[in-house]
């Protein structure tokens, strides 16, 4: 719930900035930055999302309770991704026979990261 009226000028500036970022993200796709391509693309997307949330969705002009609700969903999403990837990324540390390490017949040795 915005506590003040947002002027159309603000909307126009936000829109112009969003279009500029769209051009930037398409342009960045023609430059080979190796593994940083995805980082640049995601960074631009987060910037665009922030612009939409703050100005188009008027979170910037809203009371703290709306801030809390608006950020909660994203915080939970990040938690889900981080915890899930901490599983998928670390599986290879144990090696291809990681299933045997937990269900083997003999005693279990702690595997070293490779």
């Amino acid at each position: 719930m915005p506590t003040e009226t947002v002027q159309p000028k603000t909307y126009l500036k936000t829109f112009a900035l969003l279009m500029a970022l769209l051009a930037l993200t398409v342009g960045a796709n023609f430059i080979n930055l190796g593994p940083f391509n995805v980082a640049v693309a995601m960074l631009i997307s987060v910037a665009k999302a922030a612009l939409i949330l703050l100005f188009f969705m008027e979170v910037r002009y809203s009371p703290p309770l709306v801030w809390l609700f608006a950020t909660a969903g994203f915080v939970w999403l990040v938690l889900m991704l981080v915890i899930m990837l901490s599983d998928y990324y670390t599986r290879n540390w144990i090696g291809p026979d990681w299933r045997d390490a937990t269900g083997g017949r003999n005693h279990v040795e702690f595997a070293k990261p490779r």
Partner: peptide
Amino acid sequence: HFVDTVWVFLFPLFYLISPR
């Protein structure tokens, strides 16, 4: 605006995976 925000993430994730 939320639907718009979702697309802002879908676009680079599907169309811009690797440099052309």
